[in-house]
């Protein structure tokens, strides 16, 4: 017993050290969040020391790299919203159709074959999609729409939508899959057809889960960088015309990063101010989506 006791004491000290080490690993994720927030706040505050916030929010021009400087975030937000809206307009119907089909209609074999293929689609690097948008989709669209510029919001928007389909499809399908079988059976017992059951019972029942997946998709589209940096252009323009070059928030950060902007200058601060705007909008969407998903889980757990 005594030897065992000594052994155990020695072990207990080791245990303590290990558990502290592991706790530090867990804490690092919180430190990362704190780091992101701190970096963004510090640099954004520095930015607002030179540019009043109301000008940032109300000016309709964004020309921090020109001699005549304007610091209105509106053109970048417009560009981001334009490309994201197009993306969601593509991803929502296609993604939901795919989800309903896979969850309610497809045979097991089809599901097994299609899901990995969708995963591959989601795993293709965004720089590849950028190439595809600029050199394949844009020329293709230019044949249909002659006035389409070489850089535009439409093509990257569509490609981004295609890229997001798997995400919408798989998250929405998970939500529909979680709808209890009893609900479906009850509807069938009343003589509903398969489609009626899918659209009138399953989709409404899974609504918060589906909405959560769409919010996540929007957040993803807003934060997407390489496709728009390659194919949408670098001209901040306060417009909703999808045929002309625009610049998104992310593309602006890339544009500045590629140049040789010295740290500590106002130009350098702008990418953090833009980053802060980007971070806050995606954070809100993510939190809202997380909240919806929790609610959905509580409903059926």
């Amino acid at each position: 017993m005594e030897i065992a006791h000594q052994h155990a004491t020695k072990r207990r000290i080791g245990e303590r050290v290990i558990s502290i080490g592991l706790a530090c690993c867990g804490g690092l994720s919180i430190l990362t969040t704190i780091g992101i927030v701190a970096v963004l706040i510090v640099e954004t505050v520095a930015f607002f020391r030179h540019v009043p916030m109301w000008r940032f929010l109300t000016d309709t021009q964004w020309t921090p790299l020109f001699a005549n400087k304007h610091f209105g975030i509106a053109p970048l937000v417009a560009g981001t919203m334009l490309t994201s809206t197009i993306a969601i307009a593509v991803a929502m119907p296609l993604g939901l159709l795919t989800a309903i089909y896979l969850s309610e209609f497809a045979k097991e074999g089809v599901r097994q074959a299609v899901k990995p293929l969708l995963e591959i689609l989601a795993g293709v690097p965004t720089v590849v999609y950028g190439y595809f948008a600029l050199l394949f989709v844009t020329p293709l669209l230019q044949r249909l729409i002659p006035q389409l510029a070489g850089f535009n919001a439409l093509s990257p928007g569509i490609v981004m939508g295609l890229m997001i389909i798997p995400m919408v499809a798989s998250l929405s399908e998970d939500a529909m899959y979680a709808v209890p079988q009893g609900l479906r059976e009850a509807a069938y017992a009343l003589g509903s057809s398969k489609l009626q059951v899918s659209l009138r019972v399953v989709v409404p029942a899974a609504f918060s889960g589906i909405a959560a997946s769409l919010l996540l998709a929007i957040s993803r589209a807003i934060g997407e960088t390489m496709i728009v940096a390659i194919a949408a252009g670098q001209q901040p323009r306060f417009t909703l015309n999808p045929f002309v070059p625009v610049e998104t928030m992310t593309a602006y950060i890339v544009q500045v990063s590629l140049g040789d902007t010295p740290t500590g200058t106002l130009e350098y601060n702008t990418i953090f101010a833009v980053g802060m705007t980007l971070f806050l909008s995606t954070l809100l969407l993510n939190l809202f989506s997380l909240w919806l998903r929790e609610r959905f889980r509580e409903q059926y757990a």
Partner: peptide
């Protein structure tokens, strides 16, 4: 629970934001 929510949110932060963090924290 706090760490969990935090990780779920971190997974949704656009990758370019990590670039800004890296620029300020590691590079500078």
């Amino acid at each position: 629970r706090v760490i969990e929510v935090n990780i779920a949110n971190l997974a949704g932060v656009p990758s370019i934001i990590y670039g800004l963090l890296g620029l300020e924290l590691f590079v500078r």
